[in-house]
C-alpha cells in the first residue's frame, strides 16, 4: 500500500470483512447523491425524458462525461466530437486498473465485472483501504464498494429527475453541505497517502495539479500531477 497509516482492521464486522466494503463506500454515497440529483435536474432541463436521463447514469456512469453530454446537447455539438472528448476525459482510468490489479482476484471475469464500477472515487478508496482486507474477501469488498456507489448514483439521478426541484427548493443548505463530502473524501485519502518517502512527490503533484485546475484544466491537472509526482519521486530516489 502507498501509505503507512493502516486503516482499521475490518475483521470484527459481522459476516466477514468483505462487508466492510459497504462501510468504506459511505463517504462516496454521501458525496455522490447530491451531484447525481444535480445531474437529474440538469438532464431534464436539456429536454431529455426522465427515462433517458436515468439510463445515462445506468450505462455511462461517469460524472464528468455525463455533464459533458448534457452541455453538448445544449450546444448542439456533433456526437463524434462528444465521444472524442469523452475518451480524453476518461484516459486517466487507464492507470487505475494496473494499480489495483495486485489487490484483486486473479480471475479475469471478476476483474472485468469490477472494472465497470471503477470510478475515481471507488479507485481512490480501494487503493487506500483494500490492503488490510483478506484476499478471500476482496471480491465481495470491491463489489459492495462499487455497487454502493453505482446504485447511489442511479438513485440520486432518479430523485433529481422526479423530485430534484422540490428538494433544492426546500433543503438548499443540506444539498450544499452534502456536496462537500467529495472534496473532503479526496483530501482525506491524500492525507492518508503521505509517507516520508512520498511526501515530496505528493506535494509536487498537489502544486502542479492545483495550478492546472486553477486555470480550468482539471483533466490535465490529474495527468500532470501523476507525471510530476513520479518524476519527483525518481529524482529524490536517485
Amino acid at each position: 500500500m502507498p501509505h503507512s497509516s493502516v486503516p482499521e482492521p475490518h475483521l470484527a464486522l459481522p459476516g466477514g470483512n468483505g462487508w466492510a466494503g459497504l462501510k468504506a463506500c459511505l463517504p462516496i454515497m454521501i458525496g455522490y447523491f447530491p451531484v447525481a440529483v444535480t445531474f437529474g435536474v440538469a438532464g431534464l432541463s436539456t429536454g431529455l425524458s426522465p427515462v433517458q436521463v436515468v439510463l445515462i447514469s445506468v450505462l455511462v456512469y461517469a460524472g464528468a462525461s455525463q455533464f459533458l453530454l448534457l452541455a453538448s446537447i445544449k450546444a448542439g455539438t456533433p456526437w463524434l466530437w462528444v465521444v472524442a472528448l469523452c475518451s480524453l476525459l476518461n484516459a486517466r482510468h487507464l492507470l487505475y486498473g494496473p494499480l489495483l490489479s495486485r489487490f484483486l482476484p486473479e480471475r479475469l471475469g471478476t476483474r472485468l465485472r469490477l472494472a465497470f464500477l471503477l470510478t475515481d472515487e471507488v479507485f481512490a478508496t480501494a487503493l487506500n483501504r483494500i490492503g488490510p482486507v483478506s484476499p478471500e474477501h476482496r471480491n465481495r469488498w470491491m463489489t459492495l464498494l462499487g455497487l454502493g456507489a453505482w446504485l447511489t448514483w442511479i438513485a440520486g439521478t432518479a430523485v433529481g429527475v422526479y423530485a430534484g426541484d422540490g428538494l433544492e427548493h426546500h433543503f438548499p443548505m443540506l444539498s450544499q453541505v452534502m456536496r462537500f463530502a467529495l472534496p473532503a473524501l479526496f483530501l482525506a485519502l491524500v492525507c492518508q497517502s503521505v509517507t516520508r518517502p512520498l511526501r515530496g512527490a505528493i506535494i509536487a503533484a498537489l502544486l502542479v495539479g492545483a495550478a492546472c485546475s486553477a486555470l480550468g484544466h482539471t483533466t490535465l491537472a490529474i495527468l500532470a500531477a501523476a507525471v510530476v509526482g513520479c518524476v519527483t519521486h525518481r529524482l529524490q530516489s536517485a
Binding site: P2, H3, R92, L95, Y96, L99, D120, A124, L127, N128, L182, P183, F186, L187, L189, V190, S193, V194, L198, A201, I202, A205, L206, V208, G209, A210, C212, S213, A214, G216, T218, T219, A221, I222, L223, A224, A225, A226, V227, V228, G229, C230, V231, T232, H233, R234, S237
Partner: peptide
C-alpha cells in the same frame, strides 16, 4: 520504481481537480 508514486500522485491530482474549482 519511480512509478510507485503514481497512485498517491494520481490521488493528489484528482483532489486538486475536485477542490480547486
Amino acid at each position: 520504481s519511480s512509478l510507485a508514486a503514481l497512485g498517491p500522485a494520481l490521488l493528489a491530482g484528482i483532489a486538486t481537480a475536485v477542490i480547486m474549482p
